[in-house]
Write a protein that binds this DNA or RNA. Structure first.
Lengths: 258, 258
DNA sequence: CGGGAAGTTGAAGAGCGTCAAAAGTAGTGG
DNA sequence: CCACTACTTTTGACGCTCTTCAACTTCCCG
């Protein structure tokens, strides 16, 4: 099980730039990293006005990760919480023998690191080249007391996550491989729309193995299912991690079990 | 699919009384239903002092359900949130063809009905004779603004739920039938302890079918797995929904996949 | 007791996993 | 620019766990 190869190629740097029309300056830069944030309306910070965001930026720093680089590990002290600003992150739990369950894929605007306990309940790792903003947990808690709207927003985000988790339980416990893959593709499409991207060809940056671990399947079953959907004309593999949903209706019917 | 038979037998009434050493008076009663609450330390209300609890009790009413009676349905407007005070509740989601996934079993002290959207994201139904306290959502939101500690507590409860949900995803996606059942029994035991009950013979009030829908298995597989554990001497079925964990060590090793 | 639901057990089959190998893809170095 | 290497993806054959279908048993509660 290898991980954390921090090789950043020219290709990935180009890709990163493409994702960041307004690149977020590093912590310690002259400009507030938050005032230029292009996903603010999606995040925790949506609850703050400009002045408050400036105050917030005093405690925030920026993190950049290459594909496969770990952000934190399960059971590690939960010192920070993060907001994804560009790229994609996977979060997962492991069994002692190495079996892995992805509990989510996170995209720009998504929040991670919320932990009730002292330690993280899961591991997090970059899928693509990724940038995040980091909030020291202690300091964030101080701000939460000061800005009740922010706490309200956090509660809203947590209860949204809870609804998503319940939907995922339905998928894992009761859906077939075909239904799982169809649901997965539609989820990627819907979330792309939320981020202001277009709903059709979708970007699928994660590996078949990662998808399998998210859906409770093996790499092989995921691959076979993609092939089946392709042969049925429901999707088209465009290469380079792009997938066209050629027959969205069918996917939708399929995802709910018909 | 039948549901909602509100038949309350003498036996159940006796059982109810056993669960409620200090029965909660109905709303409109002379005594505040909350001041006598015997699970307050487990709930949302743990964040409040006596005076505040009295204020809270003005908006609270009590609900009683017989086995199988629905509390609310998925997609119904989320007008109330609830705290279980006695008994057990199951919450679940359905697929159009009737496949069901339990997303949780709730016991005294547990909270349900948190919904970010207008409507409930799941259905809820009593397992045994159950009592709950009901908070109109609008009024509760008012109190949350007044008592930030309560909002803090709610956030804590939500993020705990989130961690539990992730653990359940690991179970559903990656564990075998044996591992699932072992994990389930241990969870019941741990939660009994949290409520101040003893950890060993545990009460398993739900049917094999309900357990199956919680673990992503069929009734038959759950039953077979119970039989295997029984034959291996790991558990003992005491009848009447009571199970003795005869070899907890083995169950623990088993639940994590060894 | 007696009837109906819940639970158990058995036999057969399907879906997905496992193991293995081939094909495709991307990055490296000649 | 093309060949080489390493990894990911795809495809195939086979096996196993869990499901399905069915019958039987047990447990409640009237």
């Amino acid at each position: 099980m290898k991980r954390g190869q921090a090789v950043m190629t020219l290709f990935e740097i180009r890709k990163m730039s493409a994702h960041l029309p307004n690149p977020v300056p590093r912590a310690g830069g002259v400009v507030s990293p938050c005032s230029a944030c292009n996903v603010r309306h999606l995040t925790l910070c949506a609850a703050l006005d400009d002045r408050e965001v400036t105050e917030m930026s005093a405690i925030v720093s920026s993190v950049e990760l290459g594909p496969g680089e770990p952000l934190f590990d399960e059971a590690e002290p939960a010192k920070n919480v993060f907001n994804v600003t560009a790229g994609a992150v996977k979060v997962y739990k492991l069994l002692p023998d190495g079996r892995r369950q992805m509990t989510g894929f996170l995209f720009p605007g998504d929040f991670l690191g919320l932990a009730n306990e002292e330690n993280y309940a899961y591991s997090a790792e970059a899928v693509t080249f990724t940038t995040l903003c980091r909030f020291p947990r202690k300091k964030l808690e101080g701000l939460l007391e000061k800005y009740p709207l922010m706490e309200r927003r956090l509660l809203g985000m947590a209860s949204h996550e809870l609804a998503v988790a319940q939907e995922q339980m339905l998928l894992l416990g009761r859906k077939t491989a075909r239904e799982k893959v169809a649901s997965f593709l539609l989820m990627l499409s819907r979330r792309a729309v939320q981020r202001g991207q277009k709903d059709n060809p979708i970007s699928v940056p994660m590996s078949r193995n990662d998808i399998g671990d998210y859906l409770g399947l093996t790499t092989e079953t995921v691959s076979r299912t993609f092939t089946l959907l392709k042969q049925a004309g429901t999707i088209t593999l465009l290469g380079n991690g792009k997938v066209e949903l050629s027959d969205r209706k069918t996917l939708e019917v399929m995802s709910d079990g018909a």
